Computed example of a mutant assay.
Amino acid sequence: MRMFVCLLLAACLTGTCAAESARSSAADTDFVRKASSGNLSEIALGKLAADQASSDDVKKYAARMVADHTDANEKLGKLAGSKGIQIAAAPDAAQQQEIDRLKGLDGAAFDRAYSDLMVKSHKLTAGLYELEATKGEDTEIRAFAHDTLPVLREHEKLADSLPPF
């Protein structure tokens, strides 16, 4: 027991105390949950667009969102699982509100609202990933964010280039 206490004290004095580790990993865990929730939201919105969009450009963009965000969430899920982090099971409450709002639209109104939301959400998501890619404590999670960031920026550019409705 004395040895354990000495090792714990030494860890705290060198800056590797469990409390400090918990703080640093909390930010990475928060990123994983927000990123996975965002992926689930993009997938749900993309599937909704397949049914309710009138523009072929929007439908094509939405299909890409479903494919890319499904792939990203699978990779994130494997990474999170290896670290004992639980990914989100559903979009967060605010994201679900946006999904529900878009469910009530169709045609050009849906296309406009969806493309506007995609620009906005990808700006926010890129910011989240950029923060993790530069400040994340866990090297593997940080690398995931860094590697995914260019795809998110491309999504934002593509959403911004959708025709006005």
Rank of each mutant, 00 (worst) to 15 (best):
S55H: 04
L48G: 01
L105V: 12
D51G: 07
N73T: 04
A67K: 04
T70M: 02
A67Q: 08
A80V: 14
Q95L: 14
Q96F: 13
D56L: 10
K75L: 00
K59N: 09
A90R: 14
I85A: 04
D68R: 03
V58L: 05
Q86P: 01
E74W: 07
D100M: 10
Q96D: 13
L48N: 01
A67F: 06
N73G: 01
A63Y: 07
K60H: 13
L102F: 12
Q95H: 08
V58E: 03
D92Q: 04
L105K: 08
N73R: 03
P91K: 06
A67E: 11
L105S: 02
K59P: 10
A50S: 07
D68W: 03
Q52P: 02
D68Q: 08
I85M: 08
M65D: 04
V66N: 00
R101L: 10
K83R: 10
G81I: 13
Q95Y: 08
D57V: 09
D51Q: 08
D92R: 05
I99F: 08
A53T: 04
L105W: 06
L48R: 00
A93G: 07
Q86N: 11
K47Q: 15
L76T: 04
A80H: 10
L76Q: 00
P91L: 06
Q95T: 13
G84E: 06
K60E: 07
G81P: 13
G84L: 11
Q96R: 15
G46H: 03
A53L: 00
R101W: 02
S55M: 10
I99G: 00
P91C: 05
D92N: 15
A80D: 02
D56R: 02
I87F: 03
A49N: 08
V66D: 01
